[in-house]
């Protein structure tokens, strides 16, 4: 019950501040541009295929539009998720409202879950916007819904991991900029850490590849749901939330 109250309050304050509007607008703008450029590129190739049938090999909307679009959305999230989570705890600390919040009969995990779910709802709204583009595409081209659904599940899990880390960063500082930049930096590092897999040798290589937060997304993009990847994202999220909980509790013994 308390989770719901916190959730409502957080969601309301997202939309009372410019953050929700800015994040949603920028997302709509970027994903709209991605969609547009992928679509024109695809239609250009389709026209060439009309003259030269050799081009039509492997030319389908799912491969050429949907998959790269979702991948680009994942990159966008690298920037937007820290912006969505930075205020969750930092703002309460800065303005002092955390003092009242901590003296209300709310358990720490209820507080955390309410805030996390509010950020997740904002993220779900973004994914909803991008889904509109695919529905539009559906009018012109046949789509395979299997890979789309698995792709969106992957995006959801990836986003949860991003939000988890952002929430943790926000609980560690009262400065929203520090929370956002910190979360973005760590996420970017976790993203690019997979690049050095080949150079790192047979022992370190697989570890880096496993740590890479985007490598686990590939299977979803291809239309398969692999339990190891689902578990990776869930574990990552739970670990971040667990550490956030510890950081909130430390307020009680550190003073």
């Amino acid at each position: 019950m308390n989770v719901l109250s916190i959730f409502k309050k957080e969601l309301r304050s997202y939309f009372a501040s410019p953050i929700a509007y800015v994040v949603l607008t920028i997302f709509a703008l970027l994903s709209g541009y991605f969609f547009y450029s992928l679509l024109t590129f695809f239609s250009l190739n389709s026209m060439q295929a009309a003259f030269n049938p050799a081009f039509s090999q492997g030319l389908n909307a799912s491969e050429w539009i949907v998959r790269p679009l979702l991948r680009n959305i994942a990159v966008t999230m690298l920037l937007l998720m820290p912006a969505a989570t930075m205020r969750l705890f930092s703002e309460e600390k800065k303005s002092g409202t955390i003092e009242l919040l901590f003296t209300y009969p709310i358990r720490d995990w209820e507080l955390l879950l309410g805030k996390f779910l509010a950020a997740l709802a904002l993220y779900a709204a973004m994914l909803g916007i991008s889904l509109l583009q695919l529905l539009m595409l559906r009018v012109f081209a046949p789509l395979e819904w299997g890979p789309i659904l698995s792709g969106y599940l992957g995006l959801l899990l990836l986003g949860m991991a991003f939000l988890g880390l952002g929430t943790l960063a926000s609980s560690l500082t009262e400065n929203q900029i520090v929370a956002a930049v910190g979360a973005f930096g760590v996420l970017l590092l976790l993203w690019v850490i997979g690049w050095s897999t080949d150079a790192a040798g047979p022992t370190l290589g697989p570890i880096l590849s496993h740590l890479s937060i985007i490598n686990h997304y590939d299977s979803f993009a291809k239309g398969t749901i692999e339990s190891k990847d689902v578990i990776f994202y869930l574990n990552f999220t739970i670990l971040c939330l667990f550490l956030t909980l510890r950081s909130l509790e430390s307020k009680r013994w550190r003073g």
């Binding site: 309050k9 309301r12 304050s13 009372a16 501040s17 303005s95 002092g96 409202t97 955390i98 003092e99 009242l100």
Partner: peptide, 10 residues
Amino acid sequence: PEAVPLYTDM
């Protein structure tokens, strides 16, 4: 509390 911390956006 002394500083009366309230949610200014509500």
